[in-house]
Simulated scan of single mutants.
Amino acid sequence: MGELAESTVQLLNYLISGFLTAWIFYSLTPFKINNQFERVIQALIFTLIIKSSYFVIAWSLLLVGKIYSFGEIYSNIEEILPIVLAIFYGLLFSYISNNDYLHSFLRKFNITQEHSYVSEWFNAFKIHKDKYIIIQTKNDSTFDGQRIYGFPFEYPSDNLSGHFNLFDPSWVVENEEGTDLLEMSGVQSILIPNDSVAWVEFIEPAAIDTTEQG
Rank of each mutant, 00 (worst) to 15 (best):
G2E: 04
G2Q: 07
E3T: 14
S7V: 08
T8I: 07
L11M: 15
L11D: 13
L12R: 02
L12K: 03
Y14G: 09
I16N: 05
L20R: 00
L20S: 01
L20I: 07
A22Y: 07
A22R: 07
W23I: 13
W23N: 11
F25T: 15
F25H: 15
Y26H: 15
Y26E: 15
T29A: 03
T29F: 05
P30K: 15
Q36K: 12
I41Y: 05
I41H: 14
A43Y: 00
L44W: 01
I45F: 03
F46K: 13
L48M: 12
I50G: 04
I50C: 09
I50R: 11
S52W: 05
S53F: 07
F55I: 03
I57R: 04
A58F: 02
A58V: 03
A58H: 03
L61N: 14
L62E: 15
L62W: 07
V64Y: 02
V64N: 02
G65Q: 12
Y68P: 00
Y68G: 05
F70V: 04
I73D: 08
Y74F: 03
Y74M: 01
Y74V: 00
N76M: 06
I77R: 02
I83D: 08
V84C: 01
L85V: 10
A86K: 00
I87W: 01
G90T: 10
L91D: 11
L92C: 13
F93T: 15
Y95F: 15
S97F: 13
N99H: 10
D100R: 12
Y101T: 07
S104R: 15
L106F: 06
L106M: 04
N110W: 08
I111G: 02
T112V: 07
H115Q: 01
S116L: 01
Y117R: 08
Y117G: 09
Y117S: 09
S119Y: 05
E120F: 00
F122P: 04
N123Q: 04
A124D: 08
H128A: 13
D130H: 01
Q136P: 05
T137F: 04
K138M: 05
D140K: 11
T142V: 06
T142W: 05
D144T: 07
D144P: 03
I148K: 13
G150I: 04
G150D: 03
P152G: 11
P156Y: 06
P156M: 09
D158A: 12
D158T: 12
D158L: 08
L160R: 10
L160K: 12
S161T: 06
G162F: 03
H163S: 15
F164P: 03
N165H: 12
D168I: 09
S170W: 05
V172M: 05
V173D: 01
E174M: 14
E176L: 13
E177H: 03
G178A: 01
D180W: 04
L182P: 02
L182Y: 07
M184I: 08
M184L: 14
P193N: 13
P193T: 07
N194L: 13
S196M: 10
V197A: 13
V197Q: 08
V200L: 10
F202R: 06
E204L: 15
A207H: 11
I208Q: 13
Q213F: 12
G214M: 12
G214N: 14
G214T: 11
